[in-house]
Nucleic acid binder design. Structure first.
Length: 683
DNA sequence: GCAAGGTC
């Protein structure tokens, strides 16, 4: 029996080959010396494989393995592809932009071909399949992976129609886990394959049709439109929509004045600030009345003193989205730069796979061994050593598991001098995050003091940090909070050192930072961990949005308490709602100073979103709902509640409807463009 | 010249 195994990427092929061959990695690579098992191999196959390794980064590993039940002991060739190998395209007669009209792309044939840059990869599969009786798919166990698995099947069948085809189900590359997967092969899930091929087809039809529609129709407006490509995509447009939406919320914000009462008391050399339980009132006269009653009472009475242990939780294991958010906030990089650096580190073997949604480590992983490797660092080695010496704690378990990759973690130690600036920062972050995950929550004591002053109650909160624990290594988290409080006793009365009535006004929300934008995309299912940064880049390349350094804004400096900067009208609705932590949308302290950029739509970006908003009542292309709907439909296909055909029919009809509507109301879109871009009124 | 998704 001869089995061809194919993974989604070279790193998985290498790891799986290593495990299945018995751990003697050096004996499995065709590039290196062939071990004792070579005697068992068909020499023709061997030399064939050896001389036709398609790309420098794809290898065919040859070894033996006993799969147990269906196949028994086999000669195995393990190789990989590089992501998708096929591509969906329109026939050549649809190449022109002026003819046939773009809406024909909704029912034009879609051909699936081997992607231009993947012919060698596909050839390798096809040729290797000729020598095999069976094919075993080792692509990632997610939807796209299932589809890539199908693409591999098709390529292999070209070489051999009689293959017995199975799939390995695995969610990490721990030895025991891989061996278990190899002994319990399952079938490809065609529902998932169909879900993905629906997405591919819809993205192609919709993207091409609307891009051509926009570009050619708006060209007639002249000016900048003559040269621009106005692309539409199911991810880039909603991303733009978020930026425009926030822009309008900032612009339309109406500040409202508010009034508050602040009580301060000096004791034991400390200034204790008490905040008002009503926070603030939007009515001056009422505040004055309440304030004067406080003053009239003269003495404040302590009604509650509570001391209780508290802790600040260590961070969750690192996902791609979180890495990008943190990098944009603390490392002064864009999401794309962060990903590029992370990919380099991965390719050099320093960190694990950087595209993951998983925020929990598999219990089988030997995390202590990974911590041990960091003990040689000058910066965090001592911290790591303390973990090794007994401080180690199992990381928290998040709720997300993509069933394909573990959280991002360091694989081995690397000296900072061997890395570029950006790689250094990302590597340091990954390591510190990992060590933080493996240590203990920070611990402290929280003190709460409530007072009654007149008829108004006020509150002071203090924290004393007792054990910094993970904070020592995870320098991105601070636990300043409020400082220590002096001693107060229930029932005592005192005359506050100061009682002031303050005035402020609500401030608009901030423009979106990249971290906010990523959080919004994440929460709305726009793009994937691997593509979010690309979409953000794309809308900048298209001149739909600009990234500009955040300017010091007058509203931020309000000398008020912590509640001040967020207006009730807008700020609190800001970029929250993503899962996980880290998306700080308040404009205050952000990683040192300067360098934080925020996204502002260009006039073009505003015109496009506004234009679509004004013409399509039900299904606006600028909103994330359509993409979310596509996500739900894919899920329905996976769960057998609907079929690919039904989804395609329905969605194509729906989008054609939007297209026709847009065509009918093209003048509305044009008017928006004249208004915002060409700054003409009327029209 | 157009999409989004994999991956290098």
């Amino acid at each position: 029996m001869r089995v061809l195994c194919v993974a989604e990427k070279p790193s998985i092929a290498k790891a799986v080959a290593g495990h299945l061959s018995g751990g003697q990695v050096q004996s499995v690579s065709l590039k290196s010396h062939i071990g004792p098992s070579a005697a068992m191999l068909n020499i023709g196959l061997l030399t064939h494989a050896q001389h036709n390794t398609p790309e420098k980064y794809i290898k065919n590993y040859v070894f033996e393995y006993d799969f147990g039940h269906p196949w028994g002991r086999c000669h195995v060739t393990m190789t990989s592809v590089l992501g998708h190998i096929t591509s969906a395209v329109f026939p050549p007669e649809y190449k022109r932009w002026d003819h046939p009209p773009p809406d024909r792309l909704f029912d034009a044939p879609v051909n699936v071909i081997i992607a231009e840059d993947k012919t060698k990869v596909a050839d390798n599969i096809e040729k290797q399949a000729r020598y095999a009786n069976a094919l075993c798919i080792w692509t990632d166990c997610d939807r796209e992976g299932e589809h890539i698995g199908y693409e591999i099947c098709e390529a292999a069948r070209k070489g051999n129609r009689t293959l017995d085809i199975k799939r390995a189900k695995f969610s990490n590359i721990e030895r025991a886990h891989i061996l278990n997967a190899a002994r319990n092969l399952i079938d490809l899930d065609h529902k998932q394959v169909n879900a993905v091929s629906s997405r591919i087809e819809l993205d192609l039809r919709i993207g091409y049709a609307f891009t051509r529609f926009l570009t050619t129709n708006l060209r007639t407006l002249g000016g900048p439109f003559e040269k621009l490509v106005l692309s539409y995509g199911s991810c880039q447009f909603p991303t733009l929509g978020f930026v425009v939406d926030r822009y309008f919320r900032v612009r339309n914000f109406k500040p409202e004045p508010f009034w508050s009462i602040k009580v301060m008391h000096k004791r034991e050399g400390m200034d204790v600030n008490f905040s008002w339980s009503r926070t603030r009132l939007f009515d001056r006269a009422s505040t004055i009345v309440l304030y004067e009653r406080c003053l009239a009472a003269k003495m404040a009475k302590v009604t509650k003193v509570q001391e209780k242990p508290t802790k600040k939780w260590k961070p969750l294991p690192l996902t791609t989205v979180e890495l990008q958010k943190m990098a944009t906030i603390f490392l002064h990089m864009t999401g794309q730069q962060a990903m590029e650096a992370a990919e380099n580190l991965y390719n050099k073997g320093f960190i694990s796979y950087p595209r993951t949604e998983t925020d929990r480590f598999d219990s089988g992983m030997n995390l202590r061994a990974l911590v041990q490797k960091q003990t040689q660092s000058n910066s965090w080695g001592e911290f790591a050593q303390n973990l090794v010496n007994g401080g180690f704690q199992q990381p928290r378990q998040g709720r997300n598991d993509d069933k394909a990759h573990p959280p991002i973690h360091p694989i081995t130690y690397v000296a900072p001098t061997a890395l570029s600036d950006k790689e250094k920062k990302i590597y340091e972050f990954v390591v510190r995050r990992f060590l933080a995950c493996c240590s203990e929550d920070a611990k402290g004591v929280a003190t709460d003091v409530d007072i009654l002053y007149g008829e108004e109650s006020f509150h002071a909160h203090g924290v004393v940090v007792l054990e910094r624990n993970y904070l020592d290594v995870y320098i991105y988290d601070k636990w300043t909070g409020t400082a220590q409080l002096p001693k107060f006793t229930v029932g005592e009365t005192f005359e506050p050192t100061e009682a002031l009535m303050t005035e402020g006004k609500t401030a608009p929300p901030n423009y979106l930072t990249e971290a906010d934008l990523i959080a919004l995309m994440d929460a709305n299912g726009i793009g994937t961990d691997a593509t979010m940064a690309e979409h953000i880049q794309k809308i900048q390349d298209r001149e739909y949005v600009c990234a500009v350094p955040r300017t010091a804004r007058a509203a931020d400096g309000e000398d008020d308490d912590e509640g001040a900067p967020t207006g009730r009208g807008g700020g609190s609705r800001g970029g929250r709602g993503g899962r996980g932590r880290g998306a700080r949308s308040g404009g205050s302290t952000v990683g040192g100073r300067g360098g934080v950029k925020e996204f502002i739509p260009t006039k073009l970006g505003v015109a496009l979103i506004e234009g679509f908003d004004r013409m399509n009542f039900e299904t606006s292309l600028g909103k994330p709902f359509l993409r979310k709907e596509m996500e739900l439909k894919m899920k329905a296909i996976c769960e057998g509640r609907t079929t690919k055909e039904a989804v395609l029919n329905e969605s194509i009809r729906q989008y054609r409807q939007v297209y026709l509507q847009s065509q009918e109301k093209l003048n509305i879109l044009k008017a928006a463009c004249r208004q915002y871009v060409l700054q003409q009124n009327g029209g």
